[in-house]
Write a protein that binds this DNA or RNA. Structure first.
Lengths: 129, 129
DNA sequence: CTGAATCCCTGCCGATACTG
DNA sequence: CAGTATCGGCAGGGATTCAG
């Protein structure tokens, strides 16, 4: 009775053998998710794409301060993680469109959960330096 | 109609000014949450505490491979983030108990969301190297 | 327009040793 | 038992430059 936080029979933590890992391994789904979100600017890139697909320069325009290197790093990483889909428009001015995959769309609730927790955080409320 | 993923009127993304940040700033609740979870071993430490309070050595025993430095780093960081509470038992053998704060307990659903997404991830399913 | 290549600097993490 | 001190290696990230 002391802790039933994760004690529900959902396809999650308690019964799954991967929940017993004693080391940070890629086998743990939580690590997989955090690995996908890892890196500065990553969530902001996702947030832009949650609002609809964008071109490379569109993203760069929306996220000033983000260098080319980091942006292309993030995009490649997110494509690799199955979050984004890259579509090249082979025209005279080469265009590339980035959009969320269905799996990437499902990050919406995840980010929402992170948001809700963070918004409720004492650090966010009391403005602790 | 192209994207209603975050289009619900929950206390989250669309209407909140903090959702429009063009830079990774601590003002964004998502950043707050990810900052709390940041660092290797962090989620595993939290997982151990989700199963009930532990002593310092209890955590170290549960998480072999985790050095003292990193463990105390993580604990201090999580206390700072309002996730953990440290309670010193000033007895003859000095004991220190770590337990989740109510706010820390609320990380349960967050980790669940991360788990669910990661478990559904192509990288986890198809075992992509 | 869409990146890739390079350089440098910082911060994280692990190992070891030491203290109250 | 519960940490802190110190050091070194390595990866992440920013600015700039170059290429397709």
């Amino acid at each position: 009775m002391a802790h039933q936080t994760v004690g529900r029979p959902r396809p999650g933590l308690p019964d799954d053998p991967r929940a017993e890992v004693a080391e940070p391994t890629p086998a743990c789904p939580v690590e997989v998710a955090l690995a996908a979100l890892r890196g500065r600017w990553t969530t902001l890139v996702i947030r832009e794409l949650l609002g609809g697909e964008h071109s490379y320069s569109g993203l760069r325009a929306a996220l000033r301060g983000l260098s080319d290197k980091v942006l292309s790093d993030r995009l490649a990483h997110l494509v690799e993680a199955g979050v984004l889909e890259r579509r090249r428009e082979t025209g005279v001015p080469p265009r590339t469109r980035y959009r969320l995959t269905p799996h990437g769309e499902r990050l919406g609730p995840v980010l929402q959960a992170l948001w809700d927790w963070g918004a409720d955080s004492p650090a966010a409320v009391s403005g602790r330096a």
